[in-house]
């Protein structure tokens, strides 16, 4: 049971926030993270069009590997929150945590006058509340 990390991808596919909470996954360079985020954005766009019922799918929600699980929360505005966890995490607790992260994002990032939308997130208050959320939840 572990929360490995969080990515926030803006609606254009750029990685605007990346943070590692626990060891367990390979450490990548910031460039590699950017490439991965862009790739995931593309995969997500494809999966959202795979549904037999047009316009009804929100795209991939979980991508699972042997050692990790990628949980995607797509917001109504197109921002994606990717939570990397161990496969043992239950989806209900992950969904709850992602919603709380989204709330923290809308408060600490979007209500901060010094944040430019779609640009990398540099907010101390967001860092602090994320730390609190991840630590208390698990």
């Amino acid at each position: 049971m572990a929360i490995f990390g969080l990515w926030v991808i803006n609606k254009a596919g750029g990685l605007v926030y990346q943070r590692t909470f626990a060891d367990g996954l390979a450490q990548l360079t910031s460039n590699e993270y950017l490439v991965l985020a862009g790739t995931l954005h593309g995969i997500h766009a494809i999966t959202s069009r795979l549904s037999p019922i047009p316009g009804q799918s929100s795209g991939a929600q979980v991508i699972e590997g042997e050692t990790f699980k990628m949980n995607v929360l797509l917001t109504l505005t197109g921002t994606k929150f990717i939570l990397l966890t161990s496969p043992a995490e239950t989806s209900s607790s992950i969904d709850a945590l992602l919603q709380k992260i989204y709330t923290a994002y809308s408060e600490k990032v979007m209500q901060n006058p010094f944040h430019t939308p779609e640009m990398p997130i540099r907010s101390e208050a967001f860092d602090v509340s994320l730390g609190a959320l991840v630590n208390t939840g698990h």
């Binding site: 600490k108 209500q111 901060n112 006058p113 010094f114 907010s123 101390e124 208050a125």
Partner: peptide, 14 residues
């Protein structure tokens, strides 16, 4: 409550 002042504006108090 939701404002994080960036380093280059340190000293600013909203």
């Amino acid at each position: 409550r939701h404002i994080s002042v960036p380093k280059d504006l340190s000293g600013l108090s909203c």
